[in-house]
Write a protein that binds this DNA or RNA. Sequence first.
DNA 1: GTAACTGCAAACGCTTTGCACTCCC
DNA 2: GGGAGTGCAAAGCGTTTGCAGTTAC
Lengths: 142, 142
Amino acid sequence: MDDQELFALFRRNGYKVTTQRLAIYNFLISREDHPSADQIYQVLKNDYPTISLGTVYKTLDLLEELSLVQKLGFTEDRVRYDPDMKLHINMVCIKCGKIYDYKTENLKELWNVIISDIGIKPKGQRIDIYYECDDCKGKKIK
Amino acid sequence: MDDQELFALFRRNGYKVTTQRLAIYNFLISREDHPSADQIYQVLKNDYPTISLGTVYKTLDLLEELSLVQKLGFTEDRVRYDPDMKLHINMVCIKCGKIYDYKTENLKELWNVIISDIGIKPKGQRIDIYYECDDCKGKKIK
DNA sequence: GTAACTGCAAACGCTTTGCACTCCC
DNA sequence: GGGAGTGCAAAGCGTTTGCAGTTAC
């Protein structure tokens, strides 16, 4: 989604377009590791020194409401934000915590088999695989 | 797992067998809705008036370490505890929050296809489906 | 007997809330 | 111009931590 579409989506839903909202959304889609609110804040305050963590949280909630991001809760404290709303697998490194999205043609098809087995209409889903990423393989957990 | 096996597992790992630990584990496996620590505490304090929330948390962490339960983090606050360590789908009601485990013969097979596609060795996984359970269908979200 | 465990309360850390100031539209 | 949005700080709340008293073995 480019900025123009984003503008339109905001306005259509009665929300104003602000510098902060654009910055947060664009930063999020530029990253592939599903950052936390604080990680987003830490980076953005370099370019936007007055931005606040509160605004980051409020904006992320707004993006969730507009179905632009999915919040992923973990037990290790912080919520992570995934800007990919299509069916995919979250590949979660159990050591460094990085997450990337895995997609395969097969998945949609296999998923449909599972869904039709269950016989309900899902409102959403989440598929995580926990593993050791290449960078962390062999390292000790600190 | 019956109490005798549980005793043995605790002792083999250097942990003592206590009334509280047995009560918490047995309560957890008796439930199918994956309660939170506080929900466990609220029920158990009827039978064990001196049990504390801190002990519940510590015990649940111990059970996780022994691979007897899986912690499921969500964005709606509390962590939920799932005593089923085998491959299954968490069916999560988006309205009341109840979770039950769904299992099908197919799943294992389909999952293996996905895993071999990816070509890594998972250390664990989590599969959630969000839906409206029968009790909540049609109800407004409060 | 003693090391591990419990219960209690205080501390912690992420997230939310309240409010005066600011800025889209 | 006016109401929504921002920034800041305080509050909220699930979870963790520290420690004195207790219990398993």
